[in-house]
Design a protein around this nucleic acid. Structure first.
Length: 151
DNA sequence: GCCAACGTTGGC
DNA sequence: GCCAACGTTGGC
């Protein structure tokens, strides 16, 4: 049982979208380091849902991993913005996971609050220049962040 | 919209 | 293998 943090632009896919759908494929990850973390995720793991590139960047809620990594179908779809011409079903390059809605934070935990917490200094999210979209969260960091959400 | 920081590509 | 050029990310 491990903890993670996944980023998404809410204009593309938000915590509200996930709440509405209940379960969803997490697709579109096109970075090798992030993909390798996806591959390490197991069903039952928990993850924070982070909203990026939006008016209120921050952690918007919690989801659980419903299904471990499997080939992301969007890589094979020429009509998808995530299409990768170098991928084929015989040799997929990218994986996705299935996630299940768990909780919504209202309001979100703002990025500034995460940056201000000394216990979170090691989190990739708050490190200068980090653009990683899938990252591990330690048990201690998980607890700290939940506390920031008032839970 | 700006721009700093980053990852990837491709010529050599 | 190097590295410049390019495209992308993401906060502000």
């Amino acid at each position: 049982m491990a903890y993670w943090l996944l980023k998404s632009e809410p204009s593309v896919f938000s915590i509200d979208d996930l709440e509405q759908r209940g379960i969803s494929l997490w697709d579109g990850v096109r970075n090798y380091q992030a993909r390798n973390f996806l591959r390490a995720m197991q069903a039952g793991d928990e993850a924070f849902f982070y909203h990026s590139s939006c008016p209120e960047p921050g952690i918007a809620g919690i989801m659980t991993v419903a299904r471990a990594a499997h080939p992301d179908p969007t890589q094979f779809n020429p009509d998808s913005p995530y299409h990768d011409p170098k991928s084929s079903p015989d040799a997929p390059r990218w994986d996705g996971i299935d996630v299940c809605f768990s909780e919504k934070f209202n309001p979100v935990i703002p990025l500034a609050a995460l940056k201000a917490a000394p216990a979170l200094a090691g989190l990739a999210l708050v490190q200068k220049g980090s653009r990683l979209s899938v990252m591990p969260v330690s048990a201690a960091e998980w607890k700290t962040i939940r506390k920031l959400a008032g839970r």
